[in-house]
Computed example of a mutant assay.
Amino acid sequence: MLRSTVSAVQANALTPLYALPTAVRRRLAGAPIQIDGNTFDPEVQLLLRVESLLPGTTKTDAATARANLRSVSKLIAGHPRELQRVTDLTVRGADGQLGARLYVPRNAGRGLLVFFHGGGWVVGDLDTHDALCRTIAADAGIRVLSVDYRLAPEAPAPTAAEDAIAAFTWAVEHAEDLTVDPGLIAVGGDSAGGNLAAVVAQQSVVRDFPRPALQVLLYPAVDLVGRRPSRDLFGENFILTEEDILWYRDHYTPDPALRPDPVVSPLLADSLTGLPPALITTAGFDPLRDEGIEYADKLAEAGVEVTHISHDSLPHGHYNLQALPGAAADALTTLTTHLKSALH
């Protein structure tokens, strides 16, 4: 995870940094990084090189890690998009009300994306992913409902999953109030949020509640048991580290016996037949890359309509790097273009 020792002055420094000529930025980024046949995006490489010059921090407790992400999100978010309306509200969780935020763009269609933020089920909130939700709403022309599900370790698994299921069913039940078509409600999220979205899609079949129109899984964590080669290839120096993965896993599932349950590890479900269409994106420099690819393949084998997009030059978390030009910006455009087509 990017370090948190970024002041407001340092955050503002990104604008002139990326205003430098491309050739200068390439020199500052350093020699190209090539692993497993992929070349790392030089714009992200430059960000990580600048970040490496700052004093480091070590994860100690959840509260500190949450503050770290809130600080870093301000650095990488760019300029938030203006929308017709952004409203804070509450939705139903598994045990009481949850905070949520509804994003309504100008000229919105009738589609809705129920969105669950990433952060290893431990960090992240409505604010850390505010810029991303704004961009999705504005460019896809759909409403976005971002849900502030309960976090571990205070609320370990499967609390977040049950909150996600309850929030999605609430959105379907309140489609008229949200001014959306109940048949055009998708579920999605990034990283741990992608995990929750996959769980919602699976449980819509298992528990027989309305199925999402689309499941949008952005570099999802879908297996808390197995380990694949990408964990070794990219477990250091590319935003999400092996240390991070284990720290998040242990906070979310302190009881290892729960990890094989599909409500925690959707890749391990016995059957994926009958699930809604899926958009799965993976990143070439992501330790979670291989499990995302495996889940896309397993869904396709089960007869599910799958669109798998691989952004080979990017790391985990790249949809939040909205201050950066280049491949990260292109990946976000690809995402919103697909959502606009699927949910209109």
Score class of each variant (00 low, 15 high):
residue 2 L to I: 15
residue 8 A to E: 15
residue 8 A to P: 15
residue 9 V to P: 09
residue 10 Q to A: 11
residue 12 N to F: 11
residue 15 T to D: 14
residue 18 Y to R: 13
residue 20 L to R: 14
residue 21 P to A: 06
residue 28 L to I: 14
residue 31 A to M: 06
residue 32 P to W: 11
residue 35 I to T: 14
residue 36 D to Y: 13
residue 38 N to E: 15
residue 40 F to E: 11
residue 40 F to V: 08
residue 41 D to A: 12
residue 48 L to Q: 15
residue 55 P to L: 11
residue 55 P to E: 12
residue 55 P to A: 12
residue 63 A to S: 07
residue 68 N to H: 15
residue 70 R to A: 12
residue 71 S to V: 15
residue 74 K to F: 11
residue 76 I to W: 07
residue 78 G to Y: 10
residue 81 R to N: 12
residue 83 L to Y: 10
residue 84 Q to Y: 03
residue 84 Q to W: 02
residue 86 V to I: 14
residue 86 V to C: 03
residue 90 T to G: 00
residue 93 G to S: 03
residue 93 G to Y: 01
residue 96 G to K: 02
residue 99 G to T: 04
residue 100 A to P: 02
residue 101 R to E: 04
residue 102 L to N: 01
residue 106 R to C: 04
residue 109 G to F: 03
residue 110 R to W: 03
residue 110 R to P: 01
residue 112 L to N: 00
residue 116 F to A: 01
residue 122 V to P: 01
residue 123 V to T: 09
residue 126 L to Y: 05
residue 127 D to E: 12
residue 127 D to A: 12
residue 128 T to Y: 11
residue 131 A to Y: 13
residue 131 A to W: 14
residue 135 T to V: 06
residue 139 D to G: 00
residue 140 A to G: 00
residue 142 I to P: 05
residue 142 I to V: 03
residue 145 L to R: 05
residue 145 L to N: 00
residue 154 E to D: 04
residue 157 A to R: 06
residue 161 A to S: 05
residue 165 I to T: 00
residue 167 A to E: 04
residue 168 F to N: 00
residue 168 F to L: 01
residue 172 V to A: 04
residue 172 V to I: 05
residue 174 H to P: 04
residue 177 D to S: 04
residue 178 L to M: 01
residue 178 L to P: 02
residue 179 T to A: 05
residue 182 P to L: 01
residue 182 P to A: 01
residue 185 I to Q: 05
residue 185 I to K: 07
residue 189 G to P: 01
residue 193 G to K: 03
residue 193 G to L: 04
residue 202 Q to V: 04
residue 204 S to R: 07
residue 210 P to G: 04
residue 210 P to L: 03
residue 212 P to R: 07
residue 214 L to T: 04
residue 214 L to Y: 06
residue 215 Q to M: 04
residue 217 L to D: 06
residue 220 P to G: 09
residue 223 D to K: 11
residue 224 L to I: 09
residue 227 R to M: 13
residue 227 R to L: 14
residue 228 R to E: 15
residue 230 S to I: 09
residue 232 D to G: 08
residue 235 G to P: 06
residue 237 N to K: 14
residue 238 F to G: 08
residue 247 W to L: 03
residue 250 D to L: 07
residue 250 D to N: 15
residue 252 Y to N: 09
residue 254 P to V: 02
residue 259 R to K: 09
residue 260 P to W: 03
residue 266 P to F: 10
residue 266 P to T: 05
residue 268 L to I: 04
residue 268 L to H: 11
residue 274 G to H: 07
residue 274 G to I: 08
residue 283 A to L: 14
residue 288 L to N: 12
residue 288 L to D: 14
residue 295 Y to K: 08
residue 297 D to Y: 09
residue 298 K to L: 12
residue 302 A to M: 14
residue 302 A to Q: 15
residue 304 V to L: 10
residue 304 V to E: 10
residue 309 I to D: 09
residue 314 L to H: 11
residue 316 H to I: 12
residue 317 G to E: 08
residue 317 G to P: 05
residue 319 Y to A: 09
residue 323 A to W: 10
residue 324 L to D: 10
residue 325 P to S: 08
residue 327 A to H: 10
residue 336 T to V: 05
residue 336 T to H: 06
residue 338 H to P: 00
residue 340 K to R: 13
residue 340 K to H: 09
residue 343 L to F: 04
